[in-house]
Design a protein around this nucleic acid. Structure first.
Length: 719
DNA sequence: CGAAAGGCTCTTTTT
DNA sequence: GAGCCTTTCG
């Protein structure tokens, strides 16, 4: 069958335009992924282009895998040596091959953001600054911002405007030194250093430019300047660059994605052809219209006309509950109903703004025994025990890796404390050598003098690591991990901790992952494995086969679709998040986030909000989300405690001086929504009282006296 | 040195 | 509420 047969005219045009720059503006559900895959298949099959000469860049590993699978189906065979992956993965590959030119060992480690933060803290200390005064996080963010636009420390110095910039510059400079001492790069370096490599070594760039006849970039609205420059460099020779994206789905500006990349593509490539994909195949007419109404309130956008031939469908449901617990309860109850009516659990997804919101949901799913799958949360490869084992492997692979070495030098504890470590690293720094080499010298009595006991501990540690390093290349990865666990006594160490059993299970799972690499040569397996575990995320692993409801953040939901979508926390302060209140650009991004959520839905969408929400300890009364106000009322049904048009009329009751109420056990009280009840306990909290009340019909509720609309109707006569 | 406890801050999203 | 840091005590 022809590759073009199943495409609509716009899609066909996007696939067939293979000469010159091409911008594809693709609305949600418009078959964007189909177009990209078909385009690649078309290039290979119809135009006879060697896959070796095509590069396709995706945003997540999952998207890359999906594309690979679809491509294989389309071609009836693997696409062989096609370059397909995320920016980060592709750049890591280039740097492994070509890094020598810029002084990068091919065994370099990739530091994730936690490692990065550790290293920034260390840099702060080393340049003599107090981490209490300059928060490492703020500096991390400034450095990331710099790297997203290819600013080296030198460039940064040219752009300092404040004292803080000055500080950042000093830390940034030191930080890069430490990275290179450890033979390490961070996530942003993968991109930035590739650009630098290409800039400084035209012969390398030339090879890649000649090689890549066609370049495709997906999710172009989420690229940052560095990524854009990289793509431009690569495409300069053949100019066959195809970018696909949707400005309305740009939700990563906090990662320094720059919307201008897509908005000004036509300026950079005046001969660019632009194709609009506006037919939506995913959602009902109603869902699409609601989404359009939400997004069209943004000012910074190109209007577009989404349309669909799908049925009108049912109105969206706006659900108003009292608390996040009731919200969760409603979601679970409704999902059960849907399942009883023939839906599958896997058809349902619950989406939220921040991960912390998942807790109430999880509790409800657990309580009702409804299977669910949580995407994200504490990510597997971020767990402490996993990172410990990986740190051992990293040091085995690359002993210069000071951050990993620092991490494990005293885990399990072997008598090497902070003081020793500080002294040792200061010494190593002065000698200009790695921590590992310093330890070796100590064990040979040629290093700094320590007490006998500490020298002994360090020597033991060194010998342990040497023993493990000697196994590298001899044992396969799986056995190497076992060896690490065995010689370090990691299992006993872990089992002695809290949740030790669970955490040990995680380690076993990691072993399981390692098994997948048993076909590779041991050294290669280790290298591949280490790269994989840092560049992989949780959505990538999302298993769609098991029948369970999905709990997922709105960000992670991008690119996915579900028959039924619940968006919880449609409140001011949550969605839109309060951090965006004073910045119109960020507010527009919140709106896009909401838009992304709604457009995930195929058949049915529920928008939920709670009157009162406890999040991160405190509780607050949030007015309904402003986005709800942009939905025409004829497209929704509203259900809740407040029958009438409460979207605009819910007043936040002023906190009353609770001292006047003075409740005690046994008092009868009246609540605006729950009716009459009896006080069970009344407990003083920091600056409030927490009252537990038994309401008839409704049950037991815990309320805050300052917030709850409570009135005393009868005082108990008992004591 | 190390374990335990208490106090502190910071709470968005992820390759 | 959790994680991180500092302090304290053994």
């Amino acid at each position: 069958m022809s590759i073009l047969a199943t495409l609509n005219p716009a899609q066909k045009e996007a696939v067939e335009t293979i000469q010159g720059p091409l911008l594809i503006l693709a609305g949600p559900g418009s078959g964007k992924t189909r177009v990209i895959t078909h385009r690649v298949a078309y290039l290979i099959r119809v135009c006879g282009i060697n896959p070796y000469r095509i590069m396709a860049v995706t945003f997540t590993n999952k998207a890359a895998n999906e594309m690979k699978e679809r491509l294989e189906k389309l071609l009836g065979q693997t696409a062989g040596n096609l370059t397909l992956g995320t920016f980060h993965a592709i750049c890591a590959g280039i740097l492994r091959r070509e890094g020598k030119a810029i002084g990068l060992d091919s065994r370099f480690v990739i530091y994730d953001e936690e490692d990065q933060l550790d290293l920034i803290k260390q840099s702060l200390l080393e340049v003599g600054l107090d981490p209490k005064h300059y928060t490492p996080r703020a500096i991390q963010s400034a450095i990331k911002a710099a790297k997203s636009r290819i600013w080296t420390p030198k460039d940064y110095a040219q752009h300092t405007h404040s004292y803080f910039d000055e500080i950042v510059h000093r830390v940034y400079e030191r930080y890069q030194q430490l990275l290179s001492q450890s033979q390490a790069v961070d996530f942003d370096d993968l991109l930035m250093r590739t650009v630098q490599l290409f800039t400084d070594h035209s012969e390398v760039l030339n090879r890649y430019q000649s090689r890549y006849l066609h370049i495709l970039v997906d999710e172009f609205q989420d690229t940052n300047i560095t990524q854009y420059v990289l793509v431009k460099q690569l495409a300069e020779k053949h100019r066959n660059i195809c970018v696909v994206g949707d400005p309305d789905q740009s939700i990563y500006s906090w990662r320094f994605a720059d919307l201008r990349n897509i908005l000004s593509f036509e300026k950079d490539y005046p001969d660019a052809k632009v194709v609009f994909l506006e037919q939506n195949y995913r959602s009902t007419k109603t869902i699409l219209e609601v989404a359009s109404n939400i997004i069209s309130a943004n000012l910074q956008r190109k209007p577009k006309n989404l349309w669909t031939e799908n049925e009108i469908g049912v109105p969206l449901a706006i659900i108003e509950t009292y608390s996040e617990d009731e919200e969760a309860q409603f979601v679970v109850g409704e999902i059960e109903k849907l399942v009883n009516n023939g839906a599958h659990l896997r058809d349902c997804a619950v989406m939220y703004r921040v991960n912390a919101q998942s807790r109430a949901l999880e509790e409800a799913f657990m309580r009702y025994g409804v299977p669910y799958r949580l995407v994200g949360g504490t990510r597997f490869y971020q767990r402490r025990e996993i990172k410990d084992i990986i740190a051992y492997l990293r040091v085995i692979h690359n002993p210069s890796d000071n951050i990993s070495l620092t991490r494990i030098i005293n885990i399990p504890s072997r008598g090497i404390g902070q003081r020793t470590l500080a002294e040792l690293s200061a010494w190593a720094r002065n000698q200009g050598m790695s921590l590992y080499d310093a330890i070796e010298l100590v064990s040979e009595k040629k290093g700094p003098a320590f007490t006998t006991r500490i020298t002994y501990a360090l020597t033991n540690f060194f010998e342990l690591m040497e023993k493990l390093r000697a196994k590298n290349g001899k044992l396969n990865l799986f056995d190497l991990i076992d060896k690490v666990i065995e010689t370090t006594g990691y299992q006993q160490y872990l089992l002695a901790q809290e949740n030790g059993e669970d955490r040990w299970e995680n380690v076993l799972e990691l072993r399981g992952v390692a098994e997948e690499y048993s076909e590779l040569k041991p050294k290669e397996a280790l290298a591949t494995f280490l790269e994989k575990v840092t560049l992989v995320s949780d959505v990538d692993e999302l298993d769609e086969k098991t029948d369970a409801a999905t709990l997922i953040t709105l960000h992670q939901a991008k690119g996915l679709e579900f028959p039924v979508v619940f968006i919880v926390g449609m409140e001011e302060g949550v969605l839109p998040h309060r951090k965006s209140f004073d910045d119109p650009e960020q507010m527009e991004e919140e709106r896009r986030l909401c838009y992304v959520g709604v457009t995930r839905a195929q058949k049915q969408a529920y928008l939920l909000r709670a009157f009162r929400r406890s999040l991160l300890g405190g509780s607050s009364l949030n007015p309904p989300s402003r986005f709800l106000k942009d939905i025409p009322t004829n497209l929704v049904t509203i259900k809740g405690f407040w029958e009438e048009d409460k979207l605009t009329t819910v007043a936040t009751p002023a906190p009353r001086p609770y001292s006047t109420l003075n409740l005690k056990t046994g008092d009868r009280v009246q609540h605006k929504m729950f009716g009459e009840g009896t006080v069970i306990t009344c407990k003083q909290t920091k600056d409030d009282h927490e009252v537990t009340v038994a309401f008839k019909d409704i049950g037991i509720k815990r309320l805050l006296l300052s917030l709850a609309p409570l009135e005393k109707i009868e005082e108990t006569s008992d004591i």
